[in-house]
Amino acid sequence: MTVKDLIEKHGFTPLSLPDPERTVSGCYIGDLLSWVMGRAKGDNVWLTIMSNVNTVAVASLSDVSLVLLAENVRPEDAVLSVAEAKGVNVAATELPLYEAALALRQDV
């Protein structure tokens, strides 16, 4: 499934979508950035509540396909500008982490 299809299917709010046709495969959940860099795999959906500019750098370097912010967390506009520039897809959902993970279960 592509990032775009996943976002549409679940009604997530797209915040930065420079690379919507990327494939999503698997999911990693975490807020500690080094933990994510150590464990997340390329093309994963990264489910988190961490939304500062370092999140974008970690997403880019770890090569995840989508940063999905749970609990309706919204980053600052400047963070989203960096995400757009770096080709990092970011979306938000009002679901808590656990429920968001359950929702993704069939699709990634």
Partner: peptide, 12 residues
């Protein structure tokens, strides 16, 4: 608080 300091830097 920024999400660093997990003690995973050198191990990673």
């Amino acid at each position: 608080s920024l999400g660093f300091g997990a003690g995973m830097g050198l191990p990673n």
